[in-house]
Amino acid sequence: MANFLTPMWNAVARAYGGDKPGKMLIHTGIIGWAMSSIAQIAAIVLNDKIPKEQKMFMVPQEAADAAANILSFYLITRTFTSVASKLVSRGKWLPEAVKNFLLKDTKIADKIGKSGFDVEASGLLSGNLLDDYKDFRRGIDVTSTLIGTVISCNIVTPVLRNLYASHKQKDSIKRYNEYNKKLKQNIHIDYYKRPTMADFQSGSSLKI
């Protein structure tokens, strides 16, 4: 049943209807990170209790934090998925039955596992063996994406974020203390500069 949204369904089918679910997990992960960061930024912008000067600092800070999170998520997870995909497509990681079948072909036996070889493109697999290969590839794709996601989101990103936040906190405390120090000095000077009754009574032309 075609409807006004069918072009969108077709676009999703073209991009993610294949046998590589890891790609979808990475892309939706990135969009999820971005949307959550936009929500955080919007919450700052719309919060009346935060002064404008602080907003000017907090919005770029949140945006930088989001960019770092997304970049580390993409780089780490993408590396895991890419390595796993190459391991399977080159034939370095394969179910034993599939590998034994490929090794029977003397023309390609020494190419298996090496750069430039592609199990599926070789066209040697068919029927159950091809299905077994695709099931294995899909499982490794999802597993590697999961491992990459866990490492980037649950270990690398929190450690980096804590380092950045503690650095920012120290910086803010230092600036706050400097500001307070200057403020105290100013009050001190103002206090002694302020005219007192004594100023008018002695050394002044004004006599009461």
Partner: peptide, 20 residues
């Protein structure tokens, strides 16, 4: 939600669309 083009793996498509 059915697309009008050929889909290699319908299950993966549904999961992807659901996630989006």
């Amino acid at each position: 939600f059915k697309p009008t083009i050929f889909v290699q793996n319908m299950k993966q498509y549904k999961m992807a669309l659901g996630s989006i």
